[in-house]
Design a protein around this nucleic acid. Structure first.
Length: 107
DNA sequence: ACCATGACGGTGT
DNA sequence: GACACCGCCATGG
């Protein structure tokens, strides 16, 4: 597990703090951790799939479920979000602004 | 140390 | 709102 003692671990910690029914963006997490690169956050989420992290609550700045491909077909991202009361349409969160949760602002 | 890759973001058109 | 570009930096080979 290369993630231990790493930047990835901090990412997981923040994602775990996202309230149910809310979502955040890769960039928001990156800024909160002091990093300027949102891609690294996405890279971290690639491994978060196996870890106990609500990765389905992390989307890009536009509200698109860019990481849906990384989820299992029966455990897909879109369904999990709908289950929490989030409106999803065509792989995109409809009321994105309403459910957006900024860690550096609300944490 | 160099290079390619990537669940991204901001700006301009 | 959609699309094309360019910059960003952690990891792995």
């Amino acid at each position: 597990m290369p993630e231990s003692n790493s930047f990835f671990n901090d990412v997981y910690e923040v994602v775990r703090l996202i309230p149910p029914g809310r979502v955040t963006s890769y960039g928001a997490i990156a800024r909160y951790l002091g990093s300027k690169n949102a891609r690294v956050v996405g890279w971290a989420m690639n491994g978060a799939n196996a870890a106990d992290v609500p990765a389905h609550r992390v989307v890009n700045s536009v509200g698109i479920l860019t990481g849906a491909q990384a989820f299992d077909p029966d455990n897909n991202m879109e369904d999990r979000l709908r289950k929490e009361g989030i409106e999803v349409r065509a792989n995109r969160i409809v009321n994105f602004k309403s459910v957006f949760w900024d860690p550096s602002l609300e944490l």
